[in-house]
Computed example of a mutant assay.
Amino acid sequence: MLGKLTQPEIEALLSRQITGRLGCHAEGTTYVVPVNYVYKNGIIYAHSGPGKKIEMMRQNPEVCFEVDEIKSIFSWKSVIAWGRFEEITEIDEQQQAMQALIHRIMPLVEQPTGHPSHGIIESEYDLGDKIDVIVYKIIIDKTTGRFEQN
């Protein structure tokens, strides 16, 4: 049976997952990339180093985000969200977003140190000048969700 997810089911799926796919488009090119994220109150929080997706989102902040939960080919749930990229520049908001991301990621980390690109370090001095972490949010405007179950 195919069906539509309700808004509470959409919210639950966005809250439950940790990796989604971010779609951005600029200058005639579409780019889709997996990102780790935290969802809270209609906002997706994520981080990145400098690169293609950040450059594209700065050019065109309108983005699409997809997340799914697949048990089998005939048992799955999927959500697509549309929203607007905003770089977080306020220090307190950056710290809160990074703390939420680290808290969400840590249970999945096999070795708790040595992941400076995700802000997971033994000491704040380990990060140094090597990684320029960009913290951002996607303010969601619209969502849709589908499922299949046998």
Rank of each mutant, 00 (worst) to 15 (best):
G3K: 11
Q7F: 11
Q7E: 13
P8N: 12
P8R: 00
E11Y: 10
E11G: 09
A12P: 04
L13N: 10
L13W: 12
L13E: 14
S15L: 07
S15V: 00
G23S: 15
G23F: 04
T30K: 02
Y31A: 06
V32N: 09
P34R: 00
V38G: 02
K40H: 15
Y45F: 15
Y45E: 04
Y45C: 09
S48A: 11
S48N: 05
G49E: 13
P50Y: 04
I54P: 01
M57L: 00
R58C: 01
P61F: 04
P61R: 05
C64H: 01
C64V: 04
C64N: 00
C64G: 12
D68P: 06
E69H: 11
S72W: 11
I73G: 14
F74Q: 11
S75D: 14
K77N: 15
F85A: 05
E86P: 07
I88P: 04
T89E: 15
E90C: 04
D92A: 14
Q95C: 09
M98V: 13
M98T: 15
Q99N: 13
Q99I: 03
A100N: 14
L101H: 13
L101W: 09
I102V: 09
H103I: 02
L108P: 01
V109H: 01
V109S: 02
V109C: 13
E110W: 02
E110H: 03
G114P: 06
P116M: 09
S117V: 06
S117G: 01
I120D: 12
E122G: 15
S123I: 03
D126A: 12
K130A: 15
I131V: 14
I131Y: 15
V135H: 08
K137L: 07
K137C: 12
I138A: 12
I139Q: 14
K142G: 10
T143M: 13
T144R: 08
G145H: 06
G145K: 00
F147V: 00
E148I: 05
